[in-house]
Simulated scan of single mutants.
Amino acid sequence: MKIHLAAPRGFCAGVNMAVESLEIALEAMGPPVYVYHEIVHNQYVVRTFRSKGAVFVNELTDVPEGATVLFSAHGVAPATRELAKQRNLTAIDATCPLVTKVHLEAIRYAKQGYTIFLIGHDGHDEVIGTMGEAPEAIILVETEEDVDKLDVSDESKLAYLTQTTLSVDDATRIINRLKARFPELKGPPKDDICYATQNRQEAVRLLSDAADAVIVLGSQNSSNSQRLRELAESPDRPAFLIDGPEDLSVDQFQADWTVLVTAGASAPESVVNATIQWLEENFAAEVELKTVREEKVSFPLPKPLRQYAKK
């Protein structure tokens, strides 16, 4: 077996920042540190932090008054920040700066009186946070078919934004449909879909044709990991979205296959390595790195944690 190991893959700058933030908070402040929603959408990361004393909650009312709470990489709505203040919580904001950018765009368009079409997935943490910035001005659009059902009173003041972890191809199709129906539609000056999501999709698009199967490391609730699986899968090429090698079986593969291995932006490199080791042990696989693009992006820690960071 040959393994083509995609690069870039795995943790993006926003996830690196969020994970490091929680590590430092646990070390500096001691457990428990409460986290509003999952720190990132990866079960391995969540389990690891839970074992270190992180407590993940879906409601801020589950956080004791005066405790420390960390907001995840996906961002939160203003109402959540206000509730944290009311409960006297020490809030550490680990929102990815690229998500914050979308929030600020939503605020700007809403203040200018625009109706905003937010392209994204209903119920996703990032979408909930963005819509919370201007709920009266934002309409969620999930599919091309949704575009045909839109009913707005003023077609001269329309704008669109997107969830940062979407499929580039899917988002482009919806945007083109919106522009065809609403010619005066405005968009952000720069794409909302994050660089890491685009780069990982590009790598899969360019490398998957040479593979007999594709393994995507990532959890089922990870939007960007699901998009990688969808992009890789074809009628004659299976694609497996897994948390780790424990989700695989030898009868899914043939010994002479070429297997592309990649990872979503919230999947740690340790599970990639464990999966490669499993393939090596079961199929005497040989690994070849396939680099499509270099990434050198990094984001600073939240201000309250910078004093604790190792120099």
Rank of each mutant, 00 (worst) to 15 (best):
residue 1 M to V: 01
residue 2 K to Y: 04
residue 3 I to R: 02
residue 6 A to W: 00
residue 6 A to D: 03
residue 7 A to C: 12
residue 10 G to Q: 08
residue 16 N to H: 14
residue 17 M to W: 05
residue 19 V to Q: 05
residue 21 S to C: 12
residue 25 A to Y: 12
residue 26 L to D: 07
residue 31 P to D: 06
residue 33 V to R: 02
residue 34 Y to V: 14
residue 39 I to G: 07
residue 53 G to N: 03
residue 54 A to F: 01
residue 56 F to T: 05
residue 56 F to Y: 14
residue 58 N to E: 15
residue 62 D to A: 14
residue 62 D to C: 02
residue 64 P to L: 10
residue 67 A to M: 00
residue 71 F to A: 08
residue 72 S to V: 12
residue 74 H to F: 09
residue 75 G to P: 07
residue 80 T to V: 15
residue 82 E to H: 11
residue 83 L to K: 10
residue 92 I to F: 10
residue 93 D to H: 08
residue 96 C to Y: 02
residue 97 P to W: 02
residue 104 L to H: 13
residue 106 A to G: 06
residue 106 A to Q: 09
residue 107 I to S: 11
residue 107 I to C: 04
residue 110 A to E: 09
residue 112 Q to E: 15
residue 115 T to S: 14
residue 118 L to S: 01
residue 120 G to R: 04
residue 120 G to Y: 01
residue 128 I to E: 09
residue 129 G to T: 11
residue 131 M to D: 08
residue 134 A to R: 09
residue 135 P to I: 14
residue 136 E to W: 04
residue 137 A to S: 15
residue 140 L to A: 07
residue 146 D to S: 02
residue 151 D to V: 14
residue 152 V to Y: 07
residue 152 V to W: 04
residue 155 E to R: 11
residue 156 S to C: 08
residue 157 K to H: 15
residue 159 A to W: 02
residue 160 Y to Q: 09
residue 175 I to P: 05
residue 175 I to Q: 07
residue 176 N to H: 12
residue 178 L to W: 01
residue 180 A to F: 05
residue 181 R to N: 13
residue 182 F to P: 11
residue 184 E to R: 15
residue 186 K to F: 05
residue 189 P to G: 06
residue 189 P to Y: 11
residue 190 K to R: 14
residue 191 D to P: 05
residue 193 I to K: 03
residue 195 Y to I: 13
residue 198 Q to D: 06
residue 201 Q to P: 10
residue 203 A to L: 07
residue 205 R to T: 13
residue 212 D to A: 01
residue 217 L to I: 05
residue 218 G to Y: 10
residue 219 S to H: 03
residue 220 Q to K: 11
residue 220 Q to G: 06
residue 220 Q to E: 14
residue 221 N to Q: 10
residue 224 N to G: 01
residue 226 Q to R: 13
residue 233 E to S: 09
residue 237 R to G: 03
residue 239 A to C: 08
residue 239 A to M: 07
residue 244 G to Y: 01
residue 246 E to C: 01
residue 249 S to F: 01
residue 252 Q to G: 03
residue 252 Q to N: 06
residue 255 A to N: 08
residue 255 A to E: 15
residue 265 A to Q: 11
residue 270 S to G: 04
residue 271 V to P: 02
residue 275 T to C: 01
residue 285 A to F: 00
residue 285 A to K: 02
residue 294 E to D: 11
residue 295 E to A: 01
residue 299 F to R: 03
residue 300 P to I: 06
residue 300 P to D: 13
residue 300 P to G: 00
residue 300 P to M: 00
residue 302 P to G: 06
residue 302 P to E: 12
residue 302 P to W: 10
residue 305 L to A: 01
residue 305 L to H: 04
residue 306 R to Q: 15
residue 307 Q to K: 15
residue 307 Q to T: 13
residue 307 Q to E: 14
residue 307 Q to D: 09
residue 308 Y to L: 06
